[in-house]
Design a protein around this nucleic acid. Sequence first.
DNA 1: TTGAAAGCGCTAACAC
DNA 2: GTGTTAGCGCTTTCAA
Lengths: 338, 338
Amino acid sequence: MDKKATINDVAKVANVSIATVSRYLSNNGYPIKEQTKLSIKNAIEQLSYTPNIVGRMLKTNKSMDIGVIIPTILNPYYPAVIYGIEKKAYEKGYNILLCNSQRDANRQKQYVNTLIQKQVKGLIISSIGDDYLLYSDIVNKGIGLVSLEDEINLNKVGKVLFNYEKGAYMAVLHLLKLGHKKIAFLTSPLIRKSRRDILKGYINCLKDNNIAYNKVVEINEENEYENGALLGAKLLKEGDLPTAILAVNDMVAYGIMQYLTQNNISIPEDMSIVGFDDIKISKMMNPALTTIRQPSQKTGELAASMLFDILEGKESKKILLEPELVIRASTKKIRGEI
Amino acid sequence: MDKKATINDVAKVANVSIATVSRYLSNNGYPIKEQTKLSIKNAIEQLSYTPNIVGRMLKTNKSMDIGVIIPTILNPYYPAVIYGIEKKAYEKGYNILLCNSQRDANRQKQYVNTLIQKQVKGLIISSIGDDYLLYSDIVNKGIGLVSLEDEINLNKVGKVLFNYEKGAYMAVLHLLKLGHKKIAFLTSPLIRKSRRDILKGYINCLKDNNIAYNKVVEINEENEYENGALLGAKLLKEGDLPTAILAVNDMVAYGIMQYLTQNNISIPEDMSIVGFDDIKISKMMNPALTTIRQPSQKTGELAASMLFDILEGKESKKILLEPELVIRASTKKIRGEI
DNA sequence: TTGAAAGCGCTAACAC
DNA sequence: GTGTTAGCGCTTTCAA
């Protein structure tokens, strides 16, 4: 492997100064003689020179990277968000440094610090925990910050939020209308505001409709795909079964469905279930999942657009996306109801 | 926003030289008086100083970024690969610059060049096209390169491959054993070697078993989720229907299944279908998808490990992962067969 | 139209 | 133990 060529090498070969080469590269209309251009062009090809952006960054302090921190790429909701972000970023010439926090506050903090050190221009984060010192440090350093889902309630931080509470309310209402009176909420650890908001919506809807029965089944650890089975098992063990379930998200709903089916509880005949997210495959499941739609790709696009607005000096905004109930086949009228 | 503090500011506040601060930061056992350490520590906190890695990179030429280029993050196979890569990268302290080529050779080239400019130490790519000039440029610049799926047949390039041909062969054999004699292959554009290898396996298995019927349905464009419906429609229009289908991947299989079901062709009663990949959700589909397992997360881990080995000066390797047939409920004996 | 040179933030060789 | 300084690759001001 040859050592990488630098602008100096190009200048030497082309027999011009590095300033001229730099001007040629920046291609900003600065007048250069055609012949000079040509010899620089040749030198670049000959050396297969690629500019070192690090040199430029140090000089201009202009990075073209943004950081994206998500809980886990294994839940298909997030790839869709990333897709939206990348779409906008690509248009603007930005690259994405992708980090999975694995819902670990320490790991998240580590990543944030690394990203700051790497001089990212902006950061889009679906955050875990509420380390406001960390967040305000980001902002104070002039790094654009946009929060997803769990709001970071700070000035100058863009927010793309979702009305989780209302979504849960709609889901439970749907079940009530189908005649269900025993509805449980099965959830991963309630360590995120978004999840606690879903719980709120669940509780409020029951209260508003004078339903006494409520059952919240929570597990202690994030186990990704296994969450559903754990929750299903815990539910069965506790007894006093519900007739319907609200799951904290679609992936968990799948796990629960699979577990219950294996245990001879059929869906929706014996148990109705509503998910949360509406990831792409939910409509292809069988039974197709009734769920609350959270627009993932749009969330990503909005977040990226907002970030770039902030970087261009515009005010940070707060967008609240509204839920939509998507009724499919995993919910039905309770047995005996007409 | 305050301007970011630099090592100079810290030195000034702590009343020491920048060299001492640098030594303090590098934390490599170089002796520093405890008291000096303390005042530097205080200065850093006071200024909420974060080291600028760009300065260090320029000096040491040691980046801690690797690039990852995949076709599309919307196919859940790739998030799983990324998960594997990130796991290993995190252990090594590397960050990931994520790029979706969208299966566009130009876009891929653009991303590669950007990544080179950004001085990534290595690159893991599920490549599109065969721009060998581009690939050898990467290697010549001393950047570690590992190719996934479609082999980049160059020296010093690590390869994590999968036996697509054998996988397809196994899938078709499975269908033949179930009594199917009319088996079609439905595929996205055959622009990738991996897809053409699947085609080969399909053809060879039919040939080896003296089956005359063969039908390859290919569409012209990548349409992500809509591929399946397009393929299903094209299949029905052509007539002379098969009794079983091999799909180029699971996502496409879902699309086909959905389309056929909507058109009153039930699976597996009227049509058997085999997918390719075995993404997580395939076992949760209904009918659960019979498919060829391609170990996604492991692919990512192996690729990352191999890349880091290359960066440490070890020989590049070639790993061929073997397929596994996962029989579920989307395939059954043909009508009339015992 | 071009070149010389300062300097971005940092590390490391060398000096004390 | 600590400081001085050159220089990494680049942009940009100033001068010619």
